[in-house]
């Protein structure tokens, strides 16, 4: 038996070759290129000079860029917080809908993806601009007296980010609630837990991995979604993503953009590592 299995293994690795090849060509090599680039010196007009330097990394420590990282982090935290608040209940109740309604909801959730995200964001400009849709509704209802000037503000960027990213949270939560064994909730109720207590100790606890993967799927992109900040934030809100994009295009400083990217990647890897640690521990003791 054992021998047979070994024989099979001999050729099993062949099936993995395409995956490794793809990863090597399109992930590993570009990454190495990025790291190497980040240690090179910028040429005077365009391109790089092959001279080793750490100046790109030292420059990130300047308050201007440090603060950009911090404010990106803060925005990402704010966005993620609101995404959890809106996405978890959405995904939860969607998973509890009757079957035919579930697929209809899924359809509605998918339809926006058929249009470019950039174009959908322009839609928000119409909503947020002075005397735009939102202003007119609020003034029509006599809630506000004059235009709020929401476009090119922090709240506008937050709303835009939530809008772009919330489907990922909904889907992550939905799939984990869908897998729930509801007998466990019945068991909790039977043993004396009220609705809320049963939800916290059983349902929420068992769908936490879904929520956490939703957090990873939304927190990480929200640090780098530069086009949302561009379109809805004007020049007022600057994120790491914006700086990278600016350095790459207007600044023509490839090595510095690479260094910023490497740091951003390290940060996000740390977050994924933290997620793994949280999700892998079988019980989040002390959480309740």
């Amino acid at each position: 038996m054992r021998r047979k299995r070994k024989k099979q293994n001999k050729f099993l690795w062949l099936t993995l070759v395409p995956i490794y090849l793809f990863t090597f060509l399109f992930v590993f090599i570009p990454f190495i290129y990025l790291v190497v680039l980040s240690f090179l010196t910028r040429a005077e007009i365009w391109g790089t000079v092959n001279r080793f330097t750490t100046v790109n990394y030292l420059r990130i420590l300047e308050p201007l860029y440090c603060n950009t990282f911090l404010s990106s982090l803060q925005l990402a935290l704010t966005v993620t917080f609101f995404i959890i608040l809106s996405g978890y209940p959405f995904g939860y109740f969607m998973a509890k809908l009757p079957k035919n309604w579930k697929s209809r909801m899924m359809m509605l959730l998918m339809i926006p993806f058929w249009t470019s995200g950039l174009i959908r964001l322009y839609g928000w400009i119409i909503v947020f601009r002075s005397n735009g849709t939102l202003d007119r509704i609020l003034m029509g209802l006599h809630i506000t007296a004059k235009p709020l000037k929401l476009l090119y503000s922090y709240p506008a960027v937050v709303v835009g980010m939530i809008y772009v990213l919330v489907p990922f949270m909904i889907l992550a939560v939905y799939s984990s609630v869908e897998k729930m064994d509801w007998t466990l909730v019945e068991a909790a109720r039977d043993l004396g837990a009220g609705r809320i207590k049963a939800f916290i100790t059983v349902t929420f606890r068992l769908t936490l991995p879904g929520l956490l993967s939703g957090v990873v799927l939304t927190f990480i992109p929200s640090m780098g979604l530069f086009f949302v900040a561009d379109i809805l934030g004007g020049n007022k809100i600057v994120l790491v993503g914006n700086v990278i994009q600016e350095q790459l295009t207007k600044g023509r400083n490839l090595p510095f953009a690479a260094a910023l990217s490497v740091i951003l990647m390290i940060l996000t890897s740390l977050i994924i590592g933290l997620y793994r640690k949280l999700a892998d521990t079988k019980e989040l003791e002390g959480l309740f």
């Binding site: 064994d181 007998t183 466990l184 019945e186 068991a187 909790a188 039977d190 043993l191 059983v202 606890r205 068992l206 079988k282 019980e283």
Partner: peptide, 14 residues
Amino acid sequence: VNTVFQSYALFPHM
């Protein structure tokens, strides 16, 4: 009253 469920329904996270 308390129930012993057919599928046991033990909490997997405890």
